[in-house]
Amino acid sequence: MAINISNTKNRDAVVAFEAVVPKREVAFVDPKGKPVRTQKLLKTDIEHDLTALLKKKKDLNAVGKALVKDDPEIDLEHFGMTLTDTSRVYVSKKGIIHLVDEWEVLKNPDGETRERRQRQKQSQNINSDIPLRWSGKFIKKEDAAHKFIFTHKRQLIHVNGLTYDFLYEMAKELHERNSLMLLRGGEKGDQPIIMTRGAKPYNAFLEGRIDGDSYLLVLQLSNMELKRPPMSEPGAVATGSSTTKKSPAKTAKKK
């Protein structure tokens, strides 16, 4: 995909914006030494899952008996089919619905509801008429590493000779300063970046490295500071698993 970005002189250009994948050093092979792949399959649908069986049989004992006697949880025609190109849809008893009113329920870290508000889907701002801007805020790599968690990364790549020079110069400046540059979007250049309509915002920091005539420009994306959560003070029982308080089941209160 494309990103519209400006440099320190406020010159802008549209360049490529690509996902970064992990470096693979291990592969898996079958007993014959041949490569294998993974494939997502249909395990069960909503007409055969436990909720559906409970509706039909009324209680768990009856479901258990039905499972022993027959195979009501299996649809031999469909289960095991490969799943590709799936979509997320809202569903009512009558089927798929296309027009819904979305509300956001904001919760505190302790799970308490703080606010309910109608969802506003903001437009993406990485490839619009207004380029992403260098904020002028250089942050030393060491400082940034100790302050933020960079949860996602994207790589910027030139699309022709002109944009090669454009991006190389950016990477060179960042490399020589040993710093990241905070990027901002929007007309006033004060917004975090949003990659698709309605997606969550990220603080974006541009990192540049050069090696001879080649360059590396990485957009380091962060939505989290490196700090101890208030509910995770020392002395609490420590485990390897998340301690996020799961929010209670969605309440179906009509607005």
Binding site: L83, S87, Y90, V91, E104, K107, P109
Partner: peptide, 29 residues
């Protein structure tokens, strides 16, 4: 102890309604 964003800042859940009631988000093959 594993930490995540929700523990620091909280979270947002989306509720979807049509004219009748809250609606469920599912995956369509």
């Amino acid at each position: 102890r594993k930490i995540d964003r929700e523990q620091i800042y909280g979270s947002i859940e989306i509720e979807a309604f049509d004219e009748r009631a809250i609606r469920q988000l599912l995956v369509l093959a």
